[in-house]
């Protein structure tokens, strides 16, 4: 099958958002959605099988066609700039919802418990105490983060929970890097003050 030109694609996008020529939609995006779904699983750090990818790909198209192509119509009504990105966004969200589902079937489901005989190492008490203390400090810091102004809280979460760099955060939030550095600096200072306050209260 030959690829479509930009003009042909644009004409088809108008039809798709009118719930027409859907065979062409499937024809054109079937494989792209497969790749996007696979990448989404990777970025969610979620284990997956080939069956998961195929199921999710089908689920994405079902979402697009459901309720008389409601999600396709929403794209047009919102005046979106890129149809391909809209499809990627739907695919990403569909995978996200699946990954977070508690009753997700199989080994990778939320309810999966590791059998005792699969545990190869019994942890030492000393290590466990250290780990517990570290967890408690982390929880305290996370609780304090929730009390920060939302922008500082968001930047610190991007940095420490999500592992993004300052340039990456600036790009995602469409802000200047200097702004993000400043927000980070303020946030860290506020956080330290809050933690000191808590430690003072506990003594």
């Amino acid at each position: 099958m030959k690829k479509l030109s930009k003009e042909e694609l644009k004409a088809l996008e108008n039809e798709w958002t009118d719930c027409r020529a859907l065979e062409k939609l499937v024809e054109h995006y079937w494989r792209m959605v497969y790749h996007t779904v696979r990448e989404a699983f990777v970025r969610y750090n979620a284990p997956f099988t080939k069956q998961d990818i195929e199921d999710m790909r089908n689920e994405v198209f079902a979402e697009l066609l459901d309720r008389e192509c409601r999600k396709l119509r929403l794209y047009r009504e919102d005046g979106g700039r890129s149809f391909k990105n809209w499809i990627k966004l739907i695919a990403s969200r569909t995978v996200g919802m699946y990954v977070r589902k508690k009753d997700r079937p199989g080994v990778f489901g939320g309810d999966y418990l590791m059998p005792l005989d699969e545990m190869t190492k019994v942890p030492e008490l000393r290590d466990e105490i250290r780990r517990l203390e570290a967890r408690q400090s982390l929880h305290r810091a996370l609780d304090c983060m929730e009390k920060l102004p939302h922008k500082e809280c968001l930047v610190l979460k991007f940095l420490f929970s999500d592992g993004l760099s300052v340039p990456e955060i600036a790009s995602k939030m469409q802000e200047e890097e200097n702004n993000i550095y400043q927000i980070r600096h303020k946030g860290v200072k506020h956080l330290k003050d809050l933690l000191r306050q808590i430690e003072g209260e506990q003594r």
Binding site: M1, K2, K3, L4, E23, V26, E27, H28, W30, R31, M32, H35, T36, E39, K88
Partner: peptide, 9 residues
Amino acid sequence: IPDPEPILQ
């Protein structure tokens, strides 16, 4: 992310 070839009609 590749922009793969369309599938058959």
